[in-house]
């Protein structure tokens, strides 16, 4: 079973600090990490490889430093890594990004499964995964919380919905986006880290994947940012301090008519 995992390097935002003067994010010293949702895709690929054998490849588009994320994925147990890095890719929106990644995957064909995290924690669009499967014209299942069974030409999966879940049988090759309920990602081993450190990461540019220059980067992106602004903060209100009993009394008085 050959699996391709798509990942993105994102800034670690769980400890975000906001510059109070400009009200913007302080990016200095913010670590770059693998998009947390993608770590579940990596783990699932490693588990499938452990069960069924086959080759696993991790792929990422980004600046040269995204190589670090790929090595971390290899440390967790993936075999090979491809970095799509080219200044011509800069400014790609989700349409262009999913096109670029799908071009690279064409080059890695054949494969049985593509795994992605449900969305990236920086953009939160959840569009690139479905975009890739559409470019490749393969079926997809989003929000997968369990892979129940994998056969020669199909997978039986559970898809999370707002109300519960659905059980779906999907023909392979297919693309699945996974949610955190699917597994608990492992911490890489020392030997895995050493192997990943020494492993080769392939670097592909636009021409290496035969990507059409009109469909990548800024030119290939239908959407365009026209304005960036800091929202006017909602005004803070009344602050209570002091004795618990006084605070509670005042608060209950203020809220009781709303309940």
């Amino acid at each position: 079973m050959d699996i391709i995992v798509c990942i993105k390097q994102v800034p670690e935002t769980t400890q975000v600090r906001i510059n109070p003067a400009t009200n913007t994010l302080i990016r200095e010293g913010v670590k770059a990490i693998i998009n947390p949702f993608d770590t579940y895709a990596i783990e699932e690929a490693v588990r499938l490889k452990e069960r069924f054998g086959g080759k696993t490849t991790v792929i990422s588009m980004g600046p040269p430093q995204a190589e670090e994320a790929l090595r971390e994925a290899m440390a967790m147990g993936l075999d090979e890594a491809v970095l799509l890095t080219d200044r011509a890719f800069a400014g790609s929106d989700t349409l262009a990004t999913s096109y670029i990644v799908s071009c690279a995957i064409e080059k890695l064909t054949p494969f049985d499964l593509i795994l992605c995290g449900k969305q990236a924690s920086d953009g939160d669009t959840a569009q690139v995964g479905p975009g890739i499967s559409t470019h490749l014209d393969i079926p997809q299942v989003t929000y997968v919380k369990k892979i129940r069974e994998v056969g020669n030409s199909y997978a039986l999966v559970e898809r999370m919905t707002e109300e519960g879940y659905e059980i779906l049988k999907v023909a392979l090759p297919a693309l699945l986006t996974v949610v955190k309920e699917i597994n608990e990602p492992r911490i890489p081993s020392l030997r895995g880290m050493m192997r990943a450190k020494r492993a080769q990461v392939l670097c592909w540019k636009a021409q290496d994947i035969s990507a059409d220059s009109g469909r990548i980067g800024l030119d290939g992106s239908p959407t365009q940012v026209v304005k960036i602004f800091t929202p006017p903060p909602r005004k803070g209100g009344q602050i209570f301090e002091g004795e618990t009993s006084d605070i509670v009394e005042k608060l209950v008085e203020l809220l009781k008519d709303q309940i």
């Binding site: 911490i187 890489p188 081993s189 020392l190 880290m193 050493m194 450190k197």
Partner: peptide
């Protein structure tokens, strides 16, 4: 050494997360 740095990173992570 490279290996010592990895041990440090790995143990720091295990300590913090687990």
């Amino acid at each position: 050494t490279e290996q010592q740095k990895m041990i440090q990173e790995l143990c720091r992570r295990i300590a913090k997360e687990k």
